[in-house]
């Protein structure tokens, strides 16, 4: 029951419909849903923090591999063209399409990297049970706000469509960067599913106090 005396820190309001709930300790692996609109308010996964951190580190390293190695190679009629992820970004690099090159670079490489670094920065000390770094809250808030703008998984589907379009025209070889990129996508999905905003904010709060 919500009463006048319930401390504010024990209350949770649903971010999507503003319904007020009293937070209570969840059993392991349980999820708490909003009673009005049904969205997940919080989840409880043991060791989620350590897993998020390790997945973020893995994804970060694989992302570096994905931008440095050759992505796709095309052979037709004796001509040869190797493409990296950077080349895909630079495809729009002529005149009017230049802003689009910048946007694509952000969507598929820069924003995913910013999100991963921010998460590693914010959660690293928490896993080692130390005080959070300065600006850890701002870093985590940034990582969450950028979530819809990180489009690595959409890019990989786009690449698949492009491959099928070209398949008839020329021989395409898939390079190591393609697999690294696909790995980044899978790991990012696993990592994002583990993130429970409420618990992370709470532990950032507790660790500071």
């Amino acid at each position: 029951m919500i009463t006048e005396t319930t401390p504010l820190d024990d209350l949770v309001a649903c971010p999507q419909c503003d319904t007020l709930h009293v937070a209570s300790a969840l059993p392991e692996n349980a999820r708490a849903h909003c009673q009005q609109c049904g969205i997940v308010l919080m989840t409880s996964q043991p060791a989620a923090m350590a897993r998020i951190l390790s997945l973020a580190l893995t994804a970060f390293i694989m992302m570096i591999a994905a931008v440095s190695f050759p992505f796709l190679t095309l052979d037709a009629g004796g001509l040869h063209n190797a493409t990296s992820v950077i080349d895909a970004v630079l495809a729009f690099n002529d005149g009017y399409a230049f802003p689009l090159a910048v946007a694509v670079a952000f969507f598929i490489v820069v924003i995913p990297l910013i999100r991963l670094s921010a998460l590693i920065y914010a959660l690293g000390p928490l896993v080692r049970e130390q005080r959070p770094r300065q600006g850890a809250r701002r870093a985590f808030a940034l990582a969450e706000r950028l979530r819809p703008w990180s489009m690595a998984e959409i890019f990989i589907v786009g690449v698949t469509v492009a491959l099928i379009k070209v398949a008839g025209l020329a021989a395409v070889t898939i390079g190591p960067a393609f697999w690294a990129f696909a790995g980044v996508v899978v790991i990012t999905v696993l990592k994002d599913q583990l993130i429970c905003r409420y618990s992370i904010w709470e532990s950032l709060d507790k660790a500071t106090a």
Binding site: P15, T19, Q35
Partner: peptide
């Protein structure tokens, strides 16, 4: 599946004279 609290009638943060942070849920 757990439920957050056992409030009998649902009220909003606004009706309770509160405002919730959309980013972290703090009231």
């Amino acid at each position: 599946m757990g439920i957050a609290g056992q409030s009998h009638s649902l009220i909003t943060a606004r009706d309770a004279g509160l405002v919730a942070c959309q980013q972290c849920g703090q009231v």
